[in-house]
């Protein structure tokens, strides 16, 4: 499944990343109990800070202007157009993951939307009941069991990880917009796609900003869960949370200090009773 060029690219990138990690590890103090998936945290936080500034002064204002100026049908059309282009690669990735019916459905979507949907401006296929999927090479690699590797914040593009960055390189290599010969057209399309994408995140962005104590950590955790959910097509393995084994009653009365521990035993017995039923 994996080509040798991919392998060599992977090993090359991981080797340079390892060197980078080593360098950073030497400069950053080892005292912080860092996130296990984020060995490059100091570098990532620096890139994140850069992205935040770039977003604040350029990307967000442009996306907000687009949101204000473009009428809804135009924005829907733009989303559909790039969505249709994306469906080609989504379908291919579904096939790579062995999901034949999804892949065929995606092919059907492209067929319907490119013709009846006027080059993808209208999403007729969804109206016909062909559900839209979202797949990419990173997900396909994840589906086949490739681990996600260290968390990475990419300049301008934001949250990613080693696997998804490699996947992205693959995605872009075959991306129709990147194949357009004429530079001006290619750049305009890429710009429009980027602005449109950013505009779809305007509401979520505000929510994350309000919700988070530390936006960096919040978005990192978000990305990790989000990609896991995508790889499992909306049904990620849901393990009983190891931190959630005690019941309400047990922790309210439960001993904060061992001295108050007299009633602990019966309480634990009561609280653990329903568990076997849960875990089936």
């Amino acid at each position: 499944m994996k080509s040798s060029s991919q392998n060599s690219r992977l090993s090359m990138t991981s080797r340079s990343l390892a060197a980078l990690a080593l360098a950073l590890g030497l400069s950053a103090c080892a005292s912080t109990g860092g996130h296990p998936k984020d060995p490059l945290e100091p570098l990532n936080r620096a890139t994140f800070a850069f992205n935040e500034k770039a977003d604040q002064y350029v990307m967000r204002p442009v996306a907000e202007a687009y949101d204000r100026v473009a009428p809804l049908p135009v924005k829907v059309g733009v989303g559909n157009f790039f969505g249709n282009i994306g469906d080609v690669w989504t379908g291919f990735n579904n096939l790579l993951q062995g999901k034949l019916s999804e892949g065929l459905s995606d092919a059907g979507r492209v067929l319907v939307n490119t013709t009846v949907g006027m080059l993808g401006l209208f999403d007729i296929a969804t109206e016909l009941g062909l559900e839209k999927h979202e797949e990419d090479l990173g997900q396909t690699l994840g589906w086949w069991g490739v681990g996600d590797g260290p968390y990475l914040v990419l300049p301008f593009l934001g949250a990613s990880n080693l696997r998804d960055t490699l996947g992205l390189v693959g995605d872009l290599t075959v991306d129709p917009v990147w194949q357009v010969e004429e530079v001006a057209t290619r750049n305009s399309l890429t710009g429009l796609r980027f602005v449109h994408k950013r505009h779809t995140l305007l509401g979520a962005e505000t929510a994350a900003e309000q919700a988070a104590l530390d936006k960096y950590a919040y978005l990192r955790s978000f990305y990790i869960q989000y990609r896991l959910n995508q790889i499992h097509d909306g049904n990620p393995p849901r393990l009983k949370d190891p931190e959630d084994e005690e019941d309400e009653e047990a922790h309210i009365e439960g001993p904060a200090s061992p001295l108050a521990g007299a009633p602990a035993e019966p309480l634990i017995a009561v609280s653990s009773a329903p568990n076997p039923e849960n875990q089936e």
Partner: peptide, 14 residues
């Protein structure tokens, strides 16, 4: 979208 709005806080709380 599969992201727990609750456990998403765990890292920053930690």
């Amino acid at each position: 979208a599969g992201v727990s709005l609750v456990t998403n806080y765990r890292d920053s709380f930690g």
